[in-house]
Amino acid sequence: MFRLVAVRLFFGLLTLWAVSVAVFAATQALPGDAALMILGRDATEARVAALREQLHLDQPLVVQYAQWLQGVVRGDLGISYSNRSPVTEVLNGPIGASLTLMGLAALAAAPLALAVGAFSALRRDRAFDHTASLGTLVTAAVPEFVVGILLILALGPGGLDLFPSVYSRNGGPEQWVLPVLTLAFAVAPPIVRMMRATMIEVLESEYVQQARLKGLDERTVLVRHALPNAVGPVAQVVALQLAWLAGGVVAVEFLFNFPGIGKVLMDAIENRDVPLVQAVVLLIAGVYILVNLAADVIGLAANPKVRVTR
């Protein structure tokens, strides 16, 4: 068990490293001289040369990579081309905003999804179960930005006009509603499904059957015996969904003009801001890998047999 976790951890780190190589290599393929990009159009030759040296651009790629990785480990991700301040500074606010958005979405989605999933299991093959399963199939299929647009057209200025459809710095809390709702719709279905499957499995298990045979009432069986056993796999799915959120926020933030890392990424791509692109991709991939890792470990801890593919 401990060995398995250690192996996972090792491969997780290896993967992180591989991703860093991939990100570095990929962004090196971008045209344009970094020094020139940073200094902008009013760069003089002397200043460009000085900056090139400072950025180690005159060194071989391997050395550049080593320097860059060293920086990454130290938390120094370079200077953003477009606003010429340290990448970490640029990312500070957006990371917080994205985390808040994801947190709120998870908070909104998880309890309801868990309840629906558990209830579906209890009412297996009855109307509620069928409706819920159809509902998850439908919401799971539709891309999140499509859900977002439909929400805007229904609840936003296109329809009932209850909530604004774009985020603005001086807007009120109501501008969080639509982005959070969109993300919540996107993360809920797998949680519902996993909760249902796990609960069915648990309810059918000998363990629960025995509890029933002992004459315990259904409620106690459910709360004392069934639910705790469902925690492991469900936690895993919730974790995986959170990891998915890290990537999924991009389109949602783009749609709602929400100032998080996803929007930073799209802007950075637009401006060919290499250090910023590197940092955001690395960040999202890192979160994704770490959460996957955590999910794996949780899964192993809860039940070595359960593995979830995504």
């Binding site: 290896l14 990929a26 890290a246 991939a285």
Partner: peptide, 23 residues
């Protein structure tokens, strides 16, 4: 399968965006 696991670790959309933005 190990290589596979590494590839799996890259979020799909982010990978696509990264490549698109470069090439």
């Amino acid at each position: 399968m190990r290589v596979n696991d590494m590839l799996l670790a890259f979020p799909q959309l982010i990978a696509a965006l990264l490549v698109m933005s470069i090439i």
